[in-house]
């Protein structure tokens, strides 16, 4: 089981801030593919990966990052702090 978190417009588009997911995906990309098959709102949120960033266990990561042993994956748009 992996905790999947969504922030900003990704959260709004998917309609929830976090969920626990049972997945057989081995990479972040694989997880995205699984989510997109679920419902159109996921496909809409993940339509343009260039507009998204991912954190794996709270570290910024690449979309091909492995999921083995991972507890938490978060998807969000580029950050706008400061």
């Amino acid at each position: 089981m992996i905790d999947v978190l969504y922030f900003a417009w990704v959260r709004e588009r998917i309609g929830l801030p976090r969920e626990r997911i049972e997945t057989s995906a081995t990479t972040v990309s694989g997880l995205i593919d699984e989510l997109c098959l679920r419902e159109p709102r996921y496909a809409a949120a993940f339509a343009d990966l260039a507009a998204l960033r991912v954190a794996v266990d709270q570290e910024l990561s690449a979309f091909d990052a492995p999921l083995q042993g991972v507890r938490e994956v978060a998807f969000f748009p580029p950050m706008t702090g400061g």
Partner: peptide, 14 residues
């Protein structure tokens, strides 16, 4: 600090 806070600290402004 400011440059990194802008684009590497997880905050999102609406």
């Amino acid at each position: 600090l400011m440059d990194y806070l802008k684009s590497r600290a997880p905050f999102w402004k609406k």
